[in-house]
Protein backbone atom coordinates (compact mmCIF):
# COMPACT_ATOMS: atom_id res chain seq x y z
CA UNK A 1 0.00 0.00 0.00
CA UNK A 2 1.36 3.45 -0.84
CA UNK A 3 2.38 5.99 1.80
CA UNK A 4 -0.47 8.42 1.03
CA UNK A 5 -3.11 5.76 1.67
CA UNK A 6 -1.43 4.82 4.96
CA UNK A 7 -1.35 8.51 5.93
CA UNK A 8 -5.10 8.80 5.33
CA UNK A 9 -5.74 5.60 7.30
CA UNK A 10 -3.73 7.07 10.19
CA UNK A 11 -5.53 10.44 10.13
CA UNK A 12 -9.04 8.95 9.89
CA UNK A 13 -8.45 6.21 12.47
CA UNK A 14 -6.81 8.66 14.88
CA UNK A 15 -9.67 11.18 14.67
CA UNK A 16 -12.35 8.47 14.76
CA UNK A 17 -10.78 6.73 17.76
CA UNK A 18 -10.45 10.01 19.63
CA UNK A 19 -14.12 10.84 19.01
CA UNK A 20 -15.19 7.38 20.25
CA UNK A 21 -13.18 7.94 23.42
CA UNK A 22 -14.46 11.49 23.87
CA UNK A 23 -18.10 10.64 23.06
CA UNK A 24 -19.71 10.39 26.48
CA UNK A 25 -16.97 12.25 28.39
CA UNK A 26 -17.63 15.44 26.42
CA UNK A 27 -20.77 15.28 24.36
CA UNK A 28 -23.26 13.11 26.18
CA UNK A 29 -21.83 13.63 29.66
CA UNK A 30 -25.23 13.28 31.35
CA UNK A 31 -26.55 10.33 29.40
CA UNK A 32 -26.20 6.59 29.80
CA UNK A 33 -25.49 4.10 27.03
CA UNK A 34 -28.82 2.58 25.94
CA UNK A 35 -28.85 -1.00 27.33
CA UNK A 36 -29.53 -2.51 23.90
CA UNK A 37 -26.49 -0.72 22.43
CA UNK A 38 -24.34 -1.98 25.28
CA UNK A 39 -25.66 -5.50 24.68
CA UNK A 40 -24.70 -5.26 20.99
CA UNK A 41 -21.29 -3.69 21.66
CA UNK A 42 -20.41 -6.56 24.00
CA UNK A 43 -20.04 -8.89 20.98
CA UNK A 44 -17.99 -6.55 18.82
CA UNK A 45 -14.52 -7.65 20.03
CA UNK A 46 -15.19 -11.39 19.60
CA UNK A 47 -16.71 -10.99 16.12
CA UNK A 48 -14.18 -8.46 14.81
CA UNK A 49 -11.03 -10.13 16.13
CA UNK A 50 -12.13 -13.55 14.87
CA UNK A 51 -12.99 -12.06 11.44
CA UNK A 52 -9.39 -10.85 11.24
CA UNK A 53 -7.78 -14.08 12.51
CA UNK A 54 -9.60 -16.71 10.44
CA UNK A 55 -8.89 -15.38 6.91
CA UNK A 56 -5.28 -14.67 7.97
CA UNK A 57 -4.67 -18.35 8.77
CA UNK A 58 -6.85 -20.30 6.33
CA UNK A 59 -5.81 -18.47 3.15
CA UNK A 60 -2.35 -18.79 1.64
CA UNK A 61 -1.65 -16.74 -1.49
CA UNK A 62 -5.36 -15.97 -1.96
CA UNK A 63 -6.37 -19.67 -1.95
CA UNK A 64 -8.28 -21.48 0.76
CA UNK A 65 -5.91 -24.04 2.28
CA UNK A 66 -7.41 -26.11 5.09
CA UNK A 67 -4.81 -28.87 5.10
CA UNK A 68 -1.90 -30.10 7.19
CA UNK A 69 0.38 -28.40 4.65
CA UNK A 70 -0.75 -24.91 5.82
CA UNK A 71 1.83 -23.91 8.47
CA UNK A 72 -0.14 -20.83 9.56
CA UNK A 73 -3.27 -22.90 10.17
CA UNK A 74 -1.49 -25.58 12.20
CA UNK A 75 0.57 -23.08 14.22
CA UNK A 76 -2.53 -20.91 14.67
CA UNK A 77 -4.66 -23.78 16.00
CA UNK A 78 -1.92 -24.77 18.41
CA UNK A 79 -1.68 -21.13 19.55
CA UNK A 80 -5.44 -21.11 20.12
CA UNK A 81 -5.13 -24.14 22.42
CA UNK A 82 -2.26 -22.44 24.28
CA UNK A 83 -4.32 -19.24 24.57
CA UNK A 84 -7.33 -21.10 25.99
CA UNK A 85 -5.18 -23.07 28.44
CA UNK A 86 -2.75 -20.39 29.65
CA UNK A 87 -4.46 -17.06 28.76
CA UNK A 88 -0.87 -15.87 28.41
CA UNK A 89 -0.07 -13.41 25.66
CA UNK A 90 3.73 -14.08 25.46
CA UNK A 91 3.26 -17.88 25.53
CA UNK A 92 0.59 -17.78 22.81
CA UNK A 93 2.66 -15.62 20.47
CA UNK A 94 5.98 -17.31 21.36
CA UNK A 95 4.85 -20.91 20.88
CA UNK A 96 2.79 -19.98 17.81
CA UNK A 97 5.73 -18.25 16.12
CA UNK A 98 8.16 -21.04 17.05
CA UNK A 99 5.80 -23.69 15.63
CA UNK A 100 5.32 -21.66 12.45
CA UNK A 101 9.09 -21.35 11.92
CA UNK A 102 9.66 -25.02 12.74
CA UNK A 103 6.97 -26.23 10.32
CA UNK A 104 8.29 -23.92 7.61
CA UNK A 105 11.82 -25.28 8.05
CA UNK A 106 10.64 -28.91 7.96
CA UNK A 107 8.10 -28.69 5.12
Amino acid sequence: MDATAILWITVATAIGTFLLRLSFIQVFANREVPPILEQILRYVPSAAVSAIIVPAIVFTEETLDVSLGNERLIAGLLALVIAVRTRSFPLTVGIGMATFWLLRAVM
Binding site: S46, A75, G76, T92, M97
Partner: peptide, 14 residues
Protein backbone atom coordinates in the same frame (compact mmCIF):
# COMPACT_ATOMS: atom_id res chain seq x y z
CA UNK B 1 2.07 -13.83 11.59
CA UNK B 2 2.44 -12.50 15.14
CA UNK B 3 -0.68 -10.37 14.47
CA UNK B 4 -3.23 -13.24 14.25
CA UNK B 5 -1.38 -14.96 17.12
CA UNK B 6 -1.70 -11.85 19.30
CA UNK B 7 -5.38 -11.69 18.45
CA UNK B 8 -5.80 -15.32 19.59
CA UNK B 9 -4.89 -14.20 23.11
CA UNK B 10 -7.20 -11.16 22.79
CA UNK B 11 -10.02 -13.33 21.42
CA UNK B 12 -9.86 -15.92 24.20
CA UNK B 13 -10.18 -13.18 26.81
CA UNK B 14 -13.28 -11.78 25.09
Amino acid sequence: FAIPLTFMAVLVRS
